[in-house]
C-alpha cells in the first residue's frame, strides 16, 4: 500500500537552516546537510528545502549545497524558493534534487510549468501556492505571492487546476492563515484542491502536533504533509509523529 509521506521543510538562508514566523524573528537551527541526514535517518519520507541562497544580497541558489545534500542523503528532496528560470531548474536537478518547486514565478510566467514538465517530466515540477481566505473568490481562497505579501485576485482552486493542465506533477498547498501557528493545517481549501486535481497534493503550514497530520490525511485526503517547527524545536520526532499516524490506521512507512 502506498504510504502517506511526512516531509520536513528546511528554510535555508545564507547556508543555515532558520525558522521564522511570517518571515520575522529568524532563529538559527543548524547546518542543512547535518539536519538532512538526521531527518533522513529519522524517518523522513522526503525533504524540501526552501530559499537555498548563498548570500543575502543576491539570490542565486546555492548549488554547492544542493550537491552536498544529494551526496549525503538517499531519499528524494525538492528545492524551491530561488528558481527564476528553466536554467535554474536544470542546475538544481542535475545537482541531484528530485524536484523543483515554483510558486510566485509560476504566477508571473505559467509557461515555466509547461516548459519544465516538457524538459524534466511532470514528476519533477511541484507547484507551491500560498492561498489566503477571501470570500469574494469562487473557492473562497485567493492566491498570494512574494511570501504572502502580494494578493493576485487569482482563485486558488482555479489556479491548482490550471497548473495541473500546464504540467505540474504535485501541488503544495501552504496556507497563509495557518502558517507558523502550529494549530493545525488549513482544512477547507486543502481538501478542495486534493479532491479536485488528479496529482498528489501536499498540505503545508500549521503542523504543531501529530494529531494535526492524522486529521489532514483523514479529512483533507492529502498524499503528504509538511512539518517544520514541531520537529525543528525537538518537541516531536518523526517517529513519534508516524507512530500516531499508524495507530490511527494511516498507511505509514515505519522501517528506516
Amino acid at each position: 500500500m502506498l504510504t502517506k509521506r511526512v516531509i520536513p521543510c528546511l528554510d535555508v538562508r545564507q547556508g543555515r537552516v532558520t525558522k521564522g514566523v511570517k518571515f520575522k524573528n529568524n532563529i538559527d537551527l543548524g547546518d542543512p546537510v547535518e539536519m538532512a541526514v538526521a531527518y533522513s535517518d529519522g524517518g523522513a519520507d522526503e525533504l524540501v528545502f526552501y530559499d537555498i541562497t548563498a548570500s543575502a544580497e543576491h539570490r542565486p541558489i546555492d548549488i554547492g549545497m544542493v550537491k552536498e545534500v544529494a551526496a549525503a542523503i538517499h531519499i528524494p528532496f525538492a528545492v524551491g524558493g530561488g528558481i527564476s528560470s528553466i536554467e535554474d531548474m536544470e542546475r538544481v536537478i542535475l545537482a541531484g534534487a528530485e524536484k523543483v518547486s515554483v510558486n510566485s514565478l509560476a504566477i508571473k510566467q505559467p509557461k515555466i510549468i509547461s516548459d519544465g514538465a516538457a524538459v524534466f517530466g511532470r514528476q519533477c515540477i511541484v507547484l507551491g501556492m500560498d492561498p489566503v481566505r477571501n470570500p469574494e473568490c469562487p473557492s473562497g481562497y485567493e492566491i498570494t505571492t512574494q511570501g504572502f505579501r502580494v494578493r493576485t485576485d487569482i482563485d486558488a482552486l482555479e489556479w491548482a487546476r490550471r497548473a495541473v493542465e500546464l504540467g505540474a506533477g504535485e501541488i503544495v498547498v501552504n496556507s497563509v492563515d495557518a502558517d507558523g501557528t502550529r494549530e493545525g493545517f488549513e482544512m477547507t481549501i486543502t481538501r478542495l484542491i486534493a479532491e479536485a486535481v488528479p496529482v498528489p497534493v501536499v498540505a503545508s503550514g500549521g503542523a504543531g502536533k501529530p494529531e494535526h497530520l492524522v486529521r489532514v490525511f483523514q479529512e483533507a485526503h492529502v498524499d503528504a504533509a509538511i512539518v517544520a517547527g514541531m520537529i525543528h524545536t525537538g518537541d516531536y520526532t518523526i517517529t513519534q509523529i508516524k507512530q500516531v499516524m499508524q495507530e490511527a490506521g494511516i498507511p505509514t512507512r515505519m522501517s528506516y
Partner: peptide, 9 residues
C-alpha cells in the same frame, strides 16, 4: 493519484 509518488511495499 497519478503518478504514483511515494513509498510503497
Amino acid at each position: 493519484k497519478i503518478p504514483e509518488i511515494g513509498w510503497n511495499q
